[in-house]
Amino acid sequence: MNADHRVPAEDEATAAELALGLIEGEERAAALRRVLAEPAFAAAVERWRVRLAQLFDLWPDAVPPPELIDRIDASLDGAPRPATRRMPWPLIATIATAVAACLLVFVVARPDPVSPPPIAAEAPALVAGIAGTGTAERQVVGALYRPETGTLRVAASTLAPAGRVAQLWVIAGDAPPYPLGLLAADVTVIRLTPADRARIAAGATLAISIEPPGGSPTGQPTGPVVGTGGLSAV
């Protein structure tokens, strides 16, 4: 339904700030949580994205050097990783990798019916620490995505109260959350469809909401969001 659910002016401004990328840190995280929890707010962000995208038409074109397509073409054949020539992702990358490595240990150390993932895989594995939010006691749920098998493994959690289920979502950029599956109390391994795999990328956010048994009836989170965490390459 695309009817214009009007949201208050202040919320409109916040939705626009998120769509433009003006806010950062905790302010941005809070707005992203609202995207998950409030469909009307998520729709407002989406409307701003569509509106602002019209400004791309004004962006002056610049022709890239002709050999760039060859570089891209060549890297499609090999390991599906961008060339990192001159790409200094200095401190952030180092910290992200260290955090990711810790999480990987955390996830892999759990009892596992599947063989442990090879760490030096061709495509990078992705990990996320889904940090508990709100009043729920603070816990971090580790998640590991293995591109070679297309499986997403989520550590055990006790986030869902009795009679409710924890549902996992992925948010790419400022797009609305997309459901990936329900989490068991024990370790959950979700085998993703090819379309879902395409949504899993470094920079995307994983989130967990509490839903009625069977999962959200609407396709968007209906219950409280109890945790969010960004995916990063190991």
Binding site: P64, L68, S75, P80, P82, A172, R199
Partner: peptide, 18 residues
């Protein structure tokens, strides 16, 4: 910018299905 565009087209290649 070349590096970024390189990476972007690889992302598009991998994520076009989404």
């Amino acid at each position: 910018a070349e590096d970024v565009v390189h990476e972007v087209y690889l992302l598009i290649w991998r994520r076009a299905g989404a």
